[in-house]
Write a protein that binds this DNA or RNA. Structure first.
Length: 427
DNA sequence: TCTGGGGTCCTAGGACCC
DNA sequence: TCTGGGGTCCTAGGACCC
């Protein structure tokens, strides 16, 4: 839909809810081009390096012309576009720019739900916060965002599903409007895969039922779908019909984190047990540092080991008490290794996650516990946690390479990042 | 040389309790 | 004498999202 055609919409009375979805165009690559004027007009790829089994995070539109896209293995992207400018990205900078974009939307409506660093829903239902035309508001948001030096596409409809799909119809700088009452007709011809929540696996199962488009999906019997797909079945039907009723959550509504995890894929598979165990220590330290920074303590430890692209195993254990200290949960992760790995197995990836946060009682519990627990080795748990906190401080002041525990060292040498541009932001 | 990392949600089976 | 049923927790795996 051409932007110029929308002026006619401005006068139309919008009946019912109005939900917008703003999606930043090739966001990471665009910020890089903004910050490096000499990169503008050229193919820019943000992602991991080919040598390290990386994938493309974002490709600029110039790079997309060569067939490069998000999630593509980097070695493949390099082959398609050998002259591309590569960078591993600068996440803190993207976060900063993202916050400015969210502020642009919040200037127009108080009800904004950020769904990722480059996407947000917002509610512009007429009469709710303003009587202005939703289309006019969307257009103004786009102008404000453009002043920041990046561009966005917006989809506008009566619910989130429609808004999201609409936003993808025209990019970059698109504004796609689905008027109230037009939802079913807009969705009907589209492939089921274009609806979020339907991935490769579900699309294949639907195809076996003879369902290829959202229109066909909308005509399915909800009860039959429930038997085949569980609780998500009837929901899919409702959404495909354009009849979903969605709520935009306030941006400052407390969102309860369920888990904190880190994982590492190795440039070359690990086989040696000492190396695998060293990797578990390393990843545990990353998780512990983030838990302490976020002020979270959890009771559930998960160890993840990926053998190859199709074989991943996880093992989980409940801890007797909540912790944010890798000296407590790291050894447990080590104990879980025997459940997911046998000597000789290749290890492509190691991950550690902590979950089981109890948000309700977090405040009171911090008054008790943690003190005076003895660990097996003789030092108190309190002493060990202090060691972790001190280590956090050293890493914060001198960089993460400044300190590592013993066995970490060899691991670090093995996986340390090198990248074509020589730029790398520690996260 | 051969697909990342950080998340969420759902399902299904087994253990356990009443 | 021959094994119910519902609820809840734990665990493993899979699908999906950006």
């Amino acid at each position: 839909m051409d932007e110029n055609t929308h002026s006619t919409f401005d006068a139309i009375a919008w009946d019912g809810p109005a939900v917008g979805l703003l999606d930043l165009d090739a966001f990471f690559a665009s910020v890089e081009q903004l910050d490096h004027p000499e990169w503008r007009g050229k193919p820019v790829i943000v992602g991991g390096s080919a040598e390290r089994r990386g994938v493309v995070s974002t490709a600029s539109y110039e790079a997309r012309r060569y067939g490069v896209h998000s999630a593509m293995p980097s070695f493949q992207a390099r082959r398609l576009c050998p002259n591309a400018i590569w960078t591993h990205g600068h996440y803190a900078r993207y976060r900063e720019m993202s916050n400015l974009v969210m502020a642009c939307i919040l200037d127009e409506t108080p009800l904004v739900e950020q769904v990722s660093i480059d996407e947000a829903f917002f509610d512009v239902t007429p009469g709710r916060f303003s009587r202005e035309s939703p289309v006019a508001i969307c257009r103004r948001i786009q102008q404000r965002v453009a002043q920041l030096g990046v561009t966005c596409s917006i989809g506008l409809g009566t619910n989130k599903t429609v808004a999201k799909i609409a936003s993808e119809r025209v990019k970059p700088r698109g504004l796609t409007v689905v008027l109230p009452g037009m939802e079913a007709g807009f969705l009907a011809p589209l492939p089921v895969r274009s609806m979020s929540g339907i991935g490769e696996a579900t699309a294949q199962r639907l195809e076996q039922l003879g369902v290829r488009t959202l229109g066909e999906l909308a005509r399915q019997d909800p009860d039959a779908m429930q038997r085949t797909f569980g609780v998500s079945g009837p929901r899919m039907v409702l959404r495909a019909a354009g009849r979903e009723r969605s709520q935009v959550r306030a941006i400052d509504a407390p969102e309860e984190v369920k888990s904190v995890s880190n994982e590492r894929t190795f440039a070359h598979d690990l086989v040696d047990e000492a190396e695998v165990r060293s990797a578990i220590d390393h990843v545990s330290t990353l998780v512990g540092t983030r838990l302490r920074r976020k002020g979270l303590t959890g009771t559930q430890v998960t160890l993840k080991v990926k053998q190859d692209i199709h074989h991943t195993h996880t093992a989980q254990r409940q801890l007797p008490a909540k912790t944010d200290d890798e000296h407590v949960f790291g050894p447990v992760a080590q104990e879980l290794l025997s459940q997911v790995w046998s000597p000789g197995d290749h290890v492509r990836l190691v991950g550690v996650a902590i979950g089981g946060f109890d948000h309700e009682v977090a405040q009171q519990m911090s008054l008790f516990g943690q003190d005076d627990q003895q660990d097996g080795a003789g030092g108190s748990a309190k002493d060990l946690r202090q060691l972790s906190v001190t280590a956090d401080e050293v890493r914060r002041r001198f960089g993460s390479a400044a300190l590592s525990y013993g066995r970490d060292l060899r691991f670090r040498e093995d996986v340390s990042d090198t990248m074509p541009t020589g730029k790398f932001d520690a996260q």
